[in-house]
């Protein structure tokens, strides 16, 4: 028992993978024949934008923060991009659309790093401001129409040899984050700051620099996730990625990242995003009223997070 427990503590991802397998198994029993190549590709396709937004939460949560503006930033960049395509072409529109994403991220970073505003408050605030700006922007560009570039649609929905094309973007992205979190100076500082900001300061870390870079990075990631997501949904709107907001936090929490900072990592978050996506499919198949589905969804998230914490607790 103690050995099993030690194993779980050292590899907290194991129970998550087991849970994922159990969920997929249950789904197959509920609806035999559903789990096939096509279903897997579809699940992965929908899990990727969620996993990317959850990267924003994971990285900020490692420092004890959070980025509640991520889903709105994703929506903004996707909407801005789609409306700019008629003027600047796909490449230009994509690059331009990432500017507001990074700008909101920088604003968050300045708030957290320089003015010591709590991340929850500042990202909530910039998110609201962003929503407002987007509405103003929409009313000024109402006539021009919008367009989702071919390349993004290919990336968002297409499959090659059965694999979703989104993996072309996501595999290098995930590899980079996984590498950076433990093997770069910046990644180490995220853990150190979340664990004990005062100690990091005494070791010579200027916290504001880390916060500024972190939230700007989070904004950039959210922007890219938004572009990918609009390629998948193919219909830009003012609330495109907003429903992913709380699931992105949930994916990070289920994945074992502590909201108090210092503990966790991106590997768990990826599995967390997959679990949430499979769970979503399952609840849809149950053909229950929307209200009941939400109750179940919330309840299951709480249960999984609690059990995971129990299993990996050191006490």
């Amino acid at each position: 028992m103690t050995r099993a427990k030690a194993l779980l503590r050292d590899y907290p991802i194991i129970p998550l993978l087991i849970l994922l397998a159990l969920l997929v198994g249950t789904l197959e029993i509920m609806r035999p024949g559903i789990v096939g190549e096509r279903w897997i590709a579809n699940t992965v396709k929908f899990a990727i934008p969620l996993a990317m937004l959850a990267a924003c939460q994971t990285l900020t949560m490692l420092t004890g923060g959070i980025d509640l503006s991520a889903a709105i930033v994703a929506t903004i960049s996707s909407f801005v991009m789609a409306t700019l395509v008629p003027f600047y072409g796909a490449t230009g529109a994509i690059l331009l659309s990432l500017l507001p994403a990074v700008a909101i991220g920088l604003l968050n970073g300045i708030g957290v790093g320089l003015f010591r505003v709590h991340p929850l408050i500042i990202t909530l605030g910039t998110g609201l401001i962003g929503t407002g700006c987007l509405q103003v922007y929409q009313s000024t560009v109402i006539a021009t129409g919008s367009e989702v570039p071919e390349a993004l649609a290919w990336l968002g929905t297409g499959r090659t040899w059965g694999f979703p094309n989104a993996l072309v973007l996501f595999v290098p992205f995930a590899a980079l984050i996984l590498y950076a979190q433990r093997r770069t100076g910046f990644g180490r500082l995220l853990f150190a700051m979340g664990d004990n900001e005062g100690a990091a300061r005494l070791a010579g870390v200027r916290g504001w620099q880390v916060h500024l870079a972190l939230y700007a990075l989070s904004g950039l990631i959210a922007g890219i996730a938004g572009l990918l997501y609009v390629g998948l949904i193919k219909a830009p709107s003012l609330s495109l990625a907003v429903p992913l907001m709380l699931p992105s936090v949930a994916a990070a929490v289920i994945g074992g990242t502590s909201i108090f900072g210092g503990r966790g990592g991106y590997a768990g978050t990826i599995v967390g995003a997959l679990i949430l996506t499979v769970l979503g499919t399952m609840l849809t198949l149950l053909q229950m009223p929307e209200g009941v589905r939400r109750i179940l969804f919330g309840g299951i998230i709480l249960g999984v997070a609690a059990i995971h914490l129990r299993l990996t607790d050191t006490r």
Partner: peptide, 14 residues
Amino acid sequence: ALPFSARARAWGPI
């Protein structure tokens, strides 16, 4: 190793 990563120029690969 914490002080090694402290300065922004040391944020890259370790």
